[in-house]
Design a protein around this nucleic acid. Structure first.
Lengths: 243, 243
DNA sequence: CCAGCGACTTGATGGATATCAAGTGATTCA
DNA sequence: TGAATCACTTGATATCCATCAAGTCGCTGG
């Protein structure tokens, strides 16, 4: 992991442009974002590199510029990927509001990555000066809350198969024809962890769906041949009605 | 469900006092909270009454004064309790920042309850006038994010038994002696749903722990006889190491 | 070029927990 | 007062998915 600080000219422009493209920083009144720039650093990670570890003192808020970051949470000797961050997304936005002041997850690069690291203290300072910044952060956190709620819903109410299909459908780019290709950008073992499935089961799931003629598997490329069929199975629940 | 608006004298005082006791409203600069009072209504629900339903247009933010509220999320024909609200807690705080403007869960009273309903629009308005209010909300949402993260961790990494023990331990009031009593304030079926267990399994779990001499069950009162033994089993994970 | 390793697949088996079903008490209500 | 209902318990069985264990294939490095 390498970090530069302060940013030099061209990086500075790039940072400004990329931050402005996020929900978190995109709707700030002119000038506010610039005041933050002196406290932004460029970080580069090589594949497999660790950005921070669970429990570590939280110092920065991040924007991913390129690459992929996996956020994972460990408990005892078990660990699970809880989120996959793609370019243009922010993460660890509310880290300085945690009682513990510690990152609640670990962040690791799944491929070589570039990130902008914003100093948490100065970010907080900016929040206290701008309601617009606060509202953006709230907006952003609301999104995360809903995502987590949906995650919980899937984990508790849906089967491994329907969870995987939901993942697949969420990652298919719309294509004109009746069939479309989804390229898996991370190893299947990571997707499995993200969905709380064991890799062996994910493999079997893929084989099953393939046998059923819903999709075809070519390594990390999945050809979807029957999107309606998949959609139908995605909403299957493992019943358990209550209250 | 009955609602009054505007509040009369004594209710007004009560509302002011109770709102001031929450994280969300407690640290507002003097005077700000008062401006909100005209937009606060008192709502009473009888046992089993519905406050709002999933998908309904979101109009209010709530503070629970007395009683118990279950927040649950449905998907298909399955449903799960995702949170149990106790007096003094706020909920649906960020509801007006949702794209859909709809409640993502349903809220039902498990016993007769009183609540303060704050008009969402005026609450938002107050946020845009006070950074302190924003920061309180952010603080509050951060708490919810961590709670959900821990919930997910438990659901995916721990067994039904250890989830139940964690619930039990989180609800034991410290007692001097080597043993303490936990009174379950909601039906066991609701706790089961909250923990994503089926009632029959919860019942068996209780029987098992009782046979092992870790606790004794007297209907809704659980006598904990071996807290260390329970703590040891609470951290059991269903292994699944990854990445 | 082959050894070793990592990512994935596939098979055999087991275990945790859901499902289905039949109880038991306690409470409500006609 | 008896019937109905509810909350819970307990038993028998089923199912999903994890575990354990061998593969295969492609890649890297000596």
């Amino acid at each position: 992991m390498t970090a530069t600080d302060p940013l030099s000219g061209p990086d500075k422009e790039q940072a400004l442009k990329e931050l402005a493209g996020t929900t978190l920083f995109g709707s700030l009144p002119a000038g506010i974002l610039e005041t933050l720039l002196p406290h932004v650093a460029l970080i580069t990670l090589s594949e497999g590199g660790t950005l921070f570890s669970q429990g570590e003192r939280a110092r920065n808020v991040y924007v991913l510029s390129s690459g992929i970051i996996a956020l994972s949470r460990a408990s005892g000797d078990a660990e699970r990927v809880v989120a996959l961050i793609e370019p243009g997304e922010t993460f660890a936005e509310a880290v300085m509001f945690l009682r513990s002041q510690q990152y609640p997850v670990s962040a690791k690069a799944l491929e070589a990555s570039r990130l902008w690291a914003i100093d948490a203290e100065h970010f907080t300072q900016m929040l206290s000066l701008s309601t617009d910044a606060c509202l953006s952060l709230i907006q952003c956190m609301t999104g995360h809350l809903i995502e987590q709620l949906v995650d919980i819903e899937r984990l508790t109410l849906h089967t491994a198969t329907s969870r995987f299909i939901a993942y697949l459908l969420a990652h298919t780019e719309r294509e004109a024809g009746g069939s479309s290709i989804v390229h898996l950008k991370v190893p299947k073992s990571v997707i499995a962890s993200r969905l709380s499935i064991v890799p062996a089961t994910l493999s079997r799931t893929l084989a099953k769906l393939s046998r059923e003629g819903l999709l075809e598997v070519y390594d990390s490329d999945i050809l979807i041949t029957d999107i309606e069929g998949l959609q139908a199975r995605a909403s299957e629940v493992s019943p358990q009605k209550v209250v």
